[in-house]
């Protein structure tokens, strides 16, 4: 067992990497050159990248024998997967491809940083004692069919909901950047080829809000399921460990954002800044805490 069997997932990861690079390039190309065929190619690339990411997750689950959410590398892939699926849904629904130039670039940067992770964050490891939690009712249902090893638990639920939240915030972040760019040029009342193809600020603002309005309940679910799990593992649902505290900081920022939208003077620009601040908090919550601050949550 010295050589971990990660060949399949590595193969799909390499494929995904290439397609994310192409996707980001084509979307940026579409944004700058505005050729329809570039945009169509970008969308096709994005679908293939999404499929490859799905395959990485499936292969990884097969290789490790548990849900593929147990270390930083796997969570990055889940993050990228959720951003891409979210974006493709957005594109399908609103037909605004220029957003891909921003959102799919975030996906690509995330894949790039996942590929740069040191080996110890990527290896397939059996779960340590604190990470083993399965829902007993689910084990009970699956056991008669002999499938009990596929049962999931609070850990899987916690990671999954948290990363849906992160991905929604990432999309909202991309949209907020676009909003600010568009808003800046509109304030000068001058056309600019960079932002002319952007949708109206009203739409960017609204879509960004939709992202956060989706991410916020998922982040909350992630925090709550983490608390439930902590209560099982450590006997306390909240211990102010850096990861917990940063999740709460992020929660406060987005709660401020949601309230800002109710107040007239805080709409638009100020709430776009809050959305960006919120995503910076997410990045720190996700990477900063894992690498800089010590704590119970050190493994991912």
């Amino acid at each position: 067992m010295t050589e971990p069997k990660v060949i399949m997932s590595l193969m799909f990861f390499t494929m995904a990497f290439a397609f994310y690079a192409a996707t980001a390039l084509f979307y940026i190309g579409y944004w700058l050159l505005r050729r329809e065929w570039i945009g169509q190619t970008a969308t096709i690339m994005a679908y293939i990248a999404a499929l490859a990411t799905t395959m990485v997750l499936i292969a990884r689950a097969g290789e490790s024998g548990h849900a593929p959410f147990s270390n930083l590398y796997e969570s990055m892939i889940l993050f990228v997967w959720a951003i891409t699926i979210g974006y493709l849904w957005l594109e399908h629904r609103y037909k605004i491809k220029v957003i891909g130039a921003f959102v799919m670039t975030i996906s690509f940067l995330a894949v790039l940083s996942a590929s740069l992770l040191p080996y110890r964050f990527k290896s397939v490891e059996p779960l340590n004692p604190a990470l083993q939690s399965k829902w007993k009712w689910l084990v009970g249902i699956l056991e008669p069919m002999g499938l009990e090893r596929y049962a999931i638990g609070w850990l899987d639920f916690h990671v999954f909901t948290t990363f849906i939240g992160y991905a929604a915030f990432a999309i909202a972040f991309g949209l907020s950047i676009m909003y600010l760019l568009k808003e800046r040029f509109e304030a000068r009342k001058k056309g600019n080829f960079l932002v002319d193809s952007f949708p109206e600020t009203r739409i960017l603002d609204e879509l960004s809000y939709r992202g956060i309005a989706l991410g916020f309940p998922f982040l909350s679910l992630g925090i709550i399921s983490g608390a439930i799990w902590a209560n099982y593992a450590w006997g306390t649902y909240w211990s102010w460990d850096p990861k917990e505290t940063w999740s709460l900081i992020t929660w406060f920022v987005y709660a401020a954002y949601l309230h800002a939208r109710v107040t007239r003077g805080w709409r638009g620009k100020k709430s776009a800044y809050l959305s960006i601040a919120g995503f910076i908090a997410v990045v720190f919550l996700y990477w900063g805490v894992s690498f800089i601050l010590p704590g119970l949550h050190a493994y991912a």
Binding site: I249, F252, V253, A256, A281
Partner: peptide
């Protein structure tokens, strides 16, 4: 909004 930002 101010209290939430201050808390954060």
């Amino acid at each position: 909004i101010f209290v939430l930002i201050a808390l954060a």
